[in-house]
């Protein structure tokens, strides 16, 4: 097993910057998708979500409001998953809600496995 980082990138164009559905439904989509990976015992770390706004510091002390990189996508957040190989990691990335708004998921193997992992110790046996 190997750990992979899934980077979510969101296109910066006015018509796709915000998802074309209500905020709660959009959040539910993400929750369900994270839950699906976690249900397979493959979610190593919830990573972080990034706010839309921020600043960029450039050489020479130049500070700008962005764009964060000179491309038309911005980083939206990342998670860490565990998979047997790259192919399996790509399969897990399928269904990511970012794809619904024409964003991308970048799948990158981790060079160093030093991230805190989710504890797998719940003995919950309640079933309904």
């Amino acid at each position: 097993m190997k750990d992979f980082v899934l980077l979510f990138r969101q296109p910066i164009t006015p018509e796709t910057a915000a998802p074309e559905m209500e905020a709660l439904a959009w959040l539910k989509k993400w929750d369900d998708w994270f839950g699906g990976i976690a249900a397979q015992g493959r979610l190593v770390n919830m990573g972080i979500r990034l706010a839309d706004q921020g600043h960029v510091l450039k050489a020479g002390g130049v500070i700008t409001d962005g764009p964060f990189v000179e491309i038309r996508e911005r980083l939206n957040g990342f998670i860490v998953i565990r998979a047997n190989n790259e192919e399996e990691a790509i399969t897990l990335a399928h269904g990511c809600p970012i794809l619904d708004i024409r964003g991308t998921v970048e799948i990158r193997p981790m060079a160093l496995n030093n991230i805190r992992t989710n504890p797998i110790l719940n003995e919950s046996r309640f079933t309904f």
């Binding site: 994270f34 839950g35 976690a38 249900a39 015992g41 979610l43 919830m46 989710n118 504890p119 797998i120 110790l121 719940n122 003995e123 919950s124 046996r125 309640f126 079933t127």
Partner: peptide
């Protein structure tokens, strides 16, 4: 599941 994974 994000806090504690278990099969059940």
């Amino acid at each position: 599941l994000l806090v504690n994974y278990s099969p059940s």
